[in-house]
Write a protein that binds this DNA or RNA. Structure first.
Lengths: 342, 342
DNA sequence: ATGAAAGCGCTAACAT
DNA sequence: ATGTTAGCGCTTTCAT
């Protein structure tokens, strides 16, 4: 009764319980409720007790949007991934999300679908939310989005790649090194007619180029390449092997741009009676969970995606909480895992 | 110069450009800038033009947290999934996210890791953000979280299941029907010694129970079941087949709780020289992208995950924008896709 | 240890 | 069609 003076403007409001309500019921000022929640040490035990009781009783849940506005700290982190379904990036996102959540942050997830236009739109939407940090899959070339991020001043971590010109922080590894090392690995195994099956994406391209260059430098002629475009499925791998064999029936080793493609190639090889690894060696990329458990088990390039997620989360949290991050560039490396397909 | 009167309290602020800055530069009131962005039709073309120019020049990006606070509309939707890596739920999340983004909403993603405790914590964090809607994977039994959601008044859509007592909206299908129909399907194929390989989760349990009951009702004795627990990998499938054969070497049909488990079973069967489907029929669940492309191609239960995501997004958007949603319950059904493993 | 005042950046309500 | 005013619910600053 006569509590609220709404004699003039009828202002909406969500109708939910607010700090004011809790404060009134506990007989304290709103700021005290805020302190009980955020800096409990500053409040005497009995007052704290009383306030917590009221919170419990009323089911009060603080409005973090309002808190974020007042404190300029949203406790929101945005992440952009190219895709989510059966994607090699998900272990990274999973640990990113876990680490963030345990530190009191939440994750906003956007998919770019490997489209630059969509990525731009995403970045604009993201900046509008004033997240405390942004996680990017891959590195961002010169673009309006890059400019916008730079201008926003929001901490950014680029991942899954290396560049001499990061926007801010960087957690990645060298795709060129991978291409070179896998080529060397296969050639050391005595393979001589090497080929590539890859999806259309910038990083796969970088691995492919280095692979090709290394093979040619070794004097092993051209590297037949099948580009499956945007279709990263098991089926693409099967079909790609068909195309490849039509071009170059004597191929004896293939480096695939993903483990799923490699599983497709292995499947098609089995159906065609091609012995893996005897007739055909196979190397995948990603070391996803099924790679070790296929029959034959897949040799592949292991990326510690979970570690990247954890590290990226740590970088962003540290910066969000005002701690400097140095170094700001981490090369998490990779390793070639030899199994049965080579 | 003498623009701002900060003679008294030095109040922080993020330092970013605000509506006020834009308004001043364009020679209009802040609300006019707001209208240019939100209801452009209400502003005369020349003023609109001028304001847009200033926005362009300054790189102004509206603060949506502030907007959300003022309008009680966050344009944020939260989603809870059990897991994200190689998960059958991701196609749903992908279309959910796409549909939301195209309508101007953003997605906050939380993982429960199949843990009720974590789910509770997530729901509390989510409610604190005052999202315009919440997407839940699965249905939420009586719990503090359910009470909290009900109390919050936020639109909720539960998915991937059916219940007579939804919190709010529901987009799902019947797991019991699936169990029954798969049992019937396999028995109609002449299979007599049926078994189950399943992960530890409530919905898989429901399918398994109905499957077992249907088999027993048909007088085909007990259904051997291997529960792989939380480990949903290809390896689990391989190992589970080993265990199953140790218990019941004469099994002639297996219903797996996921396609990935089924791929594991198929792999192990091949390694052991068991002919699929001749000696052993196999049915998966999910119809994930690789199911059709395995060799032999996997018979499985198709769920239209993408459709569920789209539909759930539509429900949430409609409710967020004040449009009533009726009916509020959608059964998207399922279908048994027969391929080579049966 | 607690509180009063001010205001984060935006938009709804009420003018004109 | 545009502006004025008053908040949304919280936290910072300053005072006691």
């Amino acid at each position: 009764m006569k509590e609220t003076d709404n004699s003039r403007r009828a202002r909406r409001g969500s109708g939910a319980i607010t700090v004011r309500d809790v404060a009134r019921l506990a007989g304290v000022a709103p700021i005290t409720v805020s302190r009980v929640l955020n800096t409990p040490a500053q409040v005497s035990p009995d007052v704290r007790q009383k306030v917590l009781e009221v919170i419990q009783k009323t089911g009060y849940v603080p409005n973090r949007m309002a808190g974020g506005l007042a404190s300029s700290r949203s406790r929101l982190i945005a992440a952009v991934v190219p895709s989510t379904v059966m994607s090699v990036f998900m272990p990274t996102i999973e640990t990113l999300n876990e680490t963030l959540f345990d530190a009191g942050y939440q994750l906003m997830l956007g998919q770019s679908d490997y489209s630059a236009a969509r990525e731009e739109a995403l970045l604009e939407a993201i900046v509008g939310r004033r997240p405390d940090g942004i996680f990017l899959t891959g590195i961002l070339g010169p673009s309006q989005g890059r400019t916008r991020l730079l201008a926003s001043g929001i901490p950014v971590v680029e991942t899954w790649d290396l560049t001499p010109t990061p926007i801010d922080m960087l957690v990645g590894f060298s795709h060129a090194d991978i291409g070179r090392e896998v080529a060397r690995f296969l050639m050391d195994k005595g393979r001589r007619r090497l080929a590539l099956i890859r999806a259309e994406d910038e990083r796969a391209q970088r691995r492919a180029d280095a692979f090709t260059e290394a093979v040619q430098r070794a004097g092993l002629g051209p590297v037949e390449t099948v580009n499956v475009g945007a279709s990263r499925s098991l089926r693409s791998g099967r079909e790609a092997l068909g195309h490849l064999l039509a071009q170059r029936p004597d191929v004896d080793a293939i480096f695939c741009s993903s483990d799923l493609l490699a599983l497709g190639v292995a499947t098609e090889a089995r159906v065609r009676g091609i012995a893996v690894p005897h007739d055909l060696a196979l190397v995948g990329f990603g070391d996803v969970s099924f790679a070790a458990d296929m029959a034959p088990a897949l040799s592949t390039v292991r990326i510690n995606g979970a570690e990247m997620g954890r590290l990226a989360a740590r970088c962003l949290i540290d910066r969000a909480e005002g701690r400097p991050v140095s170094p700001a560039v981490f090369d998490v490396g990779f390793s070639i895992v030899e199994r049965e397909t080579t």
